[in-house]
Structure formats: structure tokens, C-alpha cells
Simulated assay, not measured.
Amino acid sequence: MAYRVGIVGASGIVINTPRGEPSPPLDREISTSHVSGLSYMPEMELAAICDINPEALERFEAAWSERWPETRLYADYGEMLEREKLDILTVATSDHRHAQIVIDGAECGVRGIFCEKPIATTLEETDAMIAACERNGVKMSVNHSRRWFPLYHKVRQAIRSGAIGTPTVLTAVLGGPRAMMFRNGTHFIDALCFFAESEPVKVSAILEDGFDHWDRYRGDGGKLPENDPGMTGTVLFENGVRAIFRSLKGTAPISSLEITGPKGVIRMGGNDRGAELAVLEDVRGEPTRTMIYPEQYQVQGTVAAYRELVDIMEHGGESISSPQDARVALQILLGFLESHRQGGRLVDVPE
């Protein structure tokens, strides 16, 4: 059985091809784009793709017509939903335009929805999306993609096993020109929640200059960096963990994550394949440093995300990156906006 997939949005995150040429015996470099991931999955049929920009659809055809010659092109997602009888709907439009497409897809008979991050830009929209999926028995996951990275799970296992003691402080850094609070920062906010394993209760933040009017999301959906603020912020979790997030343009394009406990610290880059574990046995000595490397998996990243969605469609359960998880990341982002509006005060996370 082939699962019929339809995609709304044909930006680079959807249609990019793997870089480089095959180098036998190695082939098919891991790619994070949706279409590339689907192309590795014989159980998936890319039935249709939709975008209001005809040039985006032309780029899709130029890149993928040989692999997907029968994929139908649409400018109207409603028409696509009505005609194609999809099993899975992928929503990869601008950040602030996910909600109605997800709701319409859930009401139209799809069985699973894979939504890009952030899930939405208001909690009201998010709740409506979740309610529509629950009402229609539709499974949904949100593409906070690092939740399907083997390293993240290996590091969390090390933390749970007591390698650094109970975590006390998490620090995430996102630098470079695309240090955008909503578009890319949501990955790091979600990572802080993934490792804190607790509910956020209070936040504080200061946005970069020029965004004092941001009492709510006022961006362009993630297109231009100048329309999505950088910021520095703090998150207090219910279990006592404190998290610090720095996302500022004008800094080096380096991303990192650090998890500190009483016995040691784990450090890794935003896309690293391994993490450093430093443990201090004696306060008068040097820390013992070792590397944490995950097991290698044939299925990870985008392919794992789609495979998981099919699994929960067929057998029940929830995604490792559920809409409820994504809602928590959005709560923190919106809390940052409220804190900035109040001059950087510590405020409750919005419900």
C-alpha cells in the first residue's frame, strides 16, 4: 500500500535536493527536505504539491520530475484536498499560515498531518488545530526536526542515567544572520524543553532593537531575517531547571547547546554528530572529557519523522514531536514577547 502525500508549500525546505554527486559505494546523502526524504521511501507516493507561486512549482518540476513524474501541481490547496484523497498532508507554508490549512486537512479526511515549525503564531490557532485533529481522529506531528536526531536521544539517555547529575542549567545559542526568534529559534526552545523534561512556568526576555512594537507576532512568516527578531531570554521550569537562550544577529553563525549539572556538563553544536561530556571528579583537578556518539541508524531525520507518522496512524500513540509539545515551545516564544513588552520582567508563561 502506498500512502498518498500532498504538500502545501514548495520552498527550499520542501524541494531541495541532496548536495553533491553519488560517490560509490556511498550514495544518497542525508537531506532534510521533505521531498528528498519521501523519495527514499517506496511506501510513499507524492500525489500532489501546492504553492501559490508558479515559479516555486517550476523549481519543483526541474528538481524532481524524473523521480516524481506523476505528481500533480496545484495553486489552490482546497482543490488539492478535494481531488486527491490524501493519506498524509504536509503543511510547509509561512509560519503564520499553518492553522487553516491544518484544520481544513483534518476536516477533509486525511489520516496524518506533518506541520512545519513553529506550529503557529498564536495559541488560539494552535488550540484550534489540535482540536480539529482530535475531533477527526487525525494524527499530527510538528517538524522540530532534532527530535528525530539520534544524538539528542543519546544525550538524553546520558542525562537520565546520571552522567552529570540532575540538570540545573541549560544554555542554547543561535548566531548569525538567521538568528530569528520564531523561524529558527523555535528549534532551540523546543530542545530546551526536550532536555529539561518539565513544564515552563516563567520567562523573561529582551528583543533586539527595533522590535518594541512586537506585542504579538508581526513577522512575514519566516522569509526575511530583518522581520523576525533576535533576542536573549530566560526560562524557568517547574522542576527547577533554568534555561538561557541567546539568539542574536551580528554574532558568529554558530549554534550550540550546553546542559550543566552538579557533576559535569554536556556540550554540542546545533547539528553535531557527537557531544562532549566533561565530568569533574575532584574540584582540584581537571575534568575528564569523553565524547558521546549515538548508534548509527538507517532511518533518522526526515525519513524517521514520516515513518513515525505512518506508525501512529496505523497503530495509535503520539509523535515524539507532538502538537502539544510544539504548543509548549510557542508558549515560551509568546511569553518572551510579553516580557519584552513589560521591560524584560519575569512573567508567567501564557496558558
Rank of each mutant, 00 (worst) to 15 (best):
C193G: 11
A158N: 10
A158T: 11
S141T: 11
C133E: 03
F194K: 02
L207G: 01
I206M: 03
G175M: 07
A131G: 12
L170A: 02
R146K: 14
N184A: 04
P167W: 09
G176S: 11
S141C: 14
K154R: 13
L174A: 11
E197L: 08
I164L: 08
Q157W: 07
F211D: 02
N184M: 06
F195N: 11
I159A: 07
R135C: 03
S198Q: 12
A132Y: 05
P200M: 02
T166M: 00
N184L: 11
T166E: 06
V142D: 02
S198A: 15
E199W: 08
T166I: 03
P177F: 00
A172W: 03
R156C: 07
S198Y: 14
F194R: 01
G162R: 14
P177G: 10
R183C: 04
T168Q: 15
F195A: 10
D212W: 00
Q157G: 13
P167R: 06
T186L: 01
W214Y: 15
I164E: 03
H144R: 00
K202M: 12
R183V: 03
H187Q: 08
V203C: 03
R135K: 15
R160I: 00
A196G: 07
N143L: 08
K154S: 06
I206T: 12
G165L: 09
T171F: 03
H153R: 14
P167T: 12
L192G: 04
V201N: 08
A163F: 07
N136M: 07
S141P: 02
I206N: 07
P200E: 02
R183D: 05
R160P: 04
R183L: 04
G165S: 11
L174R: 14
M140K: 07
Q157F: 06
G175H: 10
V138K: 02
F149L: 06
E199S: 14
E199K: 13
L207E: 01
H187W: 09
R147F: 13
A179G: 08
L174E: 12
A179E: 10
P177T: 09
G137D: 05
M181E: 11
C133G: 05
V173N: 12
V173C: 06
P150C: 08
P177K: 09
K202I: 02
R178I: 01
F182C: 01
L207D: 02
W148E: 09
P177R: 09
K154N: 00
R160Y: 00
A132H: 06
L192F: 07
D212E: 12
S161C: 05
A179C: 08
T186W: 00
A131D: 15
C193S: 13
F188W: 12
V138R: 01
N184V: 06
E134A: 13
A158M: 13
L192A: 13
A179S: 15
G210N: 10
C193R: 09
S198F: 13
E197A: 14
A179H: 10
S145Y: 04
T171K: 01
G185L: 05
Y217R: 05
S141K: 01
K139I: 03
F194P: 01
